[in-house]
Amino acid sequence: MTLSFEAALQAFAPELPLAVGLSGGADSTALLLACARRWPGQVRALHVHHGLQAAADGFERHCAALCESLQVPLTVQRVDARGLPGQSPEDAARQARYQAFDAVVQASKAQAAIKSVAIAQHADDQAETLLLALSRGAGVAGLAAMPGRWHRAGVVWHRPLLRVAGADVRRWLLAQGVGWVEDPTNSDERYTRNRIRAQLLPVLDATFPAFRDTFSRSASHAAEASELLHELAVLDLAQVGLPPTLQALQALSPARQANVLRHWLRQTHHTTPTAAQMAELLGQIEACSTRGHQIRIKVGRGWVVRCGATLDWRDLPAADGADSPRPPPK
């Protein structure tokens, strides 16, 4: 059920000291203000200067002035958030932001160690994330959207506003008489998330007024299913071995084969196969009934290959192209 901003903050009980991610926008400004009032002297702010637009210096100045007025320590991390070829700008900025947060958390351990980090995504952000996952044909891990609580870099991370509508966050902040900065890119509809926010969410609000609650429930169900699949994959990987043996894989249903293979590739080799790559791999495993049957399928930045009785992984040599790679070593 959607909560008011005040109710969500009342239910928020992080271990202190707490760091709040502060962009300078309305959501993070409201979260920092509420936390600083509730736990004076126990809150600090983290601002990441992405260096991607001229307005970034203004964001930093706003954050510095806000933190000075609240008597909250501010740490600014400057990062290079330019993406790699083929990487979306949003993903590159997100990864750079989390790496910067991790660095601050680790540095704090020499003094008063940060125990918790809070970031200000709300119910509208959760709905946008779920719609993006659906548009990409994501599985249950993607449909789980954003968790409200998780562990990273030795601390507990929180999204205390995930059940609060974005409009309610801004109403609360306006009532406090505190200003914020608007990121110009938030209105740029070249970005899919911005088109969802500008075009889809108003229609959903008019057609399904409770969509924030129902989307949140669906994401929770997907998160539970994803956790169960993870637990099953761990059990199955212990049975099929590391690297996986073909005979043990063939004893599993195709769905369990796909689940344990995704887990193996993600956890051990940091890559995820596409649906087409997984379908090809499962077909090759099913057809693999003779000693001479070879398996060599490109997945992500490398190859899944047959090595005797097992599957194995080979990194793609740097000189190889994606379309005409050399065969991996046997």
Results as ranks from 00 to 15, higher is better:
residue 50 H to L: 15
residue 52 L to H: 08
residue 57 D to A: 15
residue 58 G to K: 11
residue 59 F to V: 13
residue 59 F to A: 15
residue 59 F to H: 14
residue 60 E to Q: 14
residue 60 E to K: 14
residue 60 E to H: 12
residue 62 H to S: 13
residue 63 C to Y: 07
residue 69 S to P: 03
residue 70 L to F: 09
residue 71 Q to A: 15
residue 71 Q to K: 14
residue 71 Q to R: 15
residue 72 V to M: 06
residue 72 V to Y: 06
residue 72 V to N: 04
residue 73 P to T: 06
residue 74 L to A: 01
residue 76 V to C: 06
residue 77 Q to K: 14
residue 77 Q to H: 11
residue 77 Q to C: 14
residue 78 R to S: 13
residue 79 V to L: 02
residue 79 V to N: 08
residue 79 V to E: 03
residue 82 R to T: 04
residue 82 R to Y: 02
residue 84 L to Q: 13
residue 85 P to W: 00
residue 86 G to R: 05
residue 87 Q to D: 06
residue 88 S to Y: 02
residue 89 P to I: 02
residue 91 D to V: 11
residue 92 A to R: 00
residue 93 A to R: 10
residue 93 A to H: 06
residue 96 A to C: 03
residue 97 R to V: 08
residue 99 Q to D: 14
residue 100 A to N: 03
residue 101 F to E: 02
residue 106 Q to T: 11
residue 106 Q to N: 08
residue 108 S to A: 07
residue 108 S to Y: 08
residue 109 K to L: 04
residue 113 A to V: 06
residue 114 I to W: 01
residue 116 S to I: 04
residue 116 S to A: 13
residue 117 V to N: 03
residue 117 V to A: 01
residue 120 A to S: 12
residue 120 A to V: 04
residue 121 Q to I: 01
residue 122 H to Q: 12
residue 123 A to M: 05
residue 124 D to T: 15
residue 124 D to P: 07
residue 125 D to W: 06
residue 125 D to K: 04
residue 125 D to H: 08
residue 127 A to H: 10
residue 128 E to K: 11
residue 128 E to Q: 15
residue 131 L to E: 03
residue 134 L to W: 12
residue 135 S to Y: 01
residue 135 S to R: 12
residue 136 R to L: 09
residue 141 A to S: 05
residue 142 G to I: 03
residue 143 L to T: 00
residue 144 A to D: 01
residue 144 A to E: 00
residue 146 M to Y: 01
residue 147 P to A: 08
residue 148 G to L: 01
residue 151 H to W: 06
residue 153 A to P: 00
residue 155 V to D: 02
residue 156 V to C: 12
residue 157 W to L: 15
residue 159 R to M: 14
residue 161 L to R: 04
residue 161 L to D: 05
residue 162 L to V: 05
residue 163 R to Q: 13
residue 164 V to D: 14
residue 165 A to L: 13
residue 168 D to H: 10
residue 169 V to H: 11
residue 171 R to A: 11
residue 172 W to S: 07
residue 173 L to P: 12
residue 175 A to Y: 03
residue 178 V to Q: 10
residue 178 V to W: 01
residue 179 G to S: 15
residue 179 G to T: 13
residue 180 W to Y: 15
residue 180 W to L: 05
residue 180 W to K: 08
residue 181 V to I: 14
residue 183 D to R: 10
residue 184 P to Q: 03
residue 184 P to F: 02
residue 185 T to I: 06
residue 186 N to Y: 11
residue 187 S to T: 07
residue 187 S to F: 09
residue 187 S to G: 15
residue 189 E to Q: 05
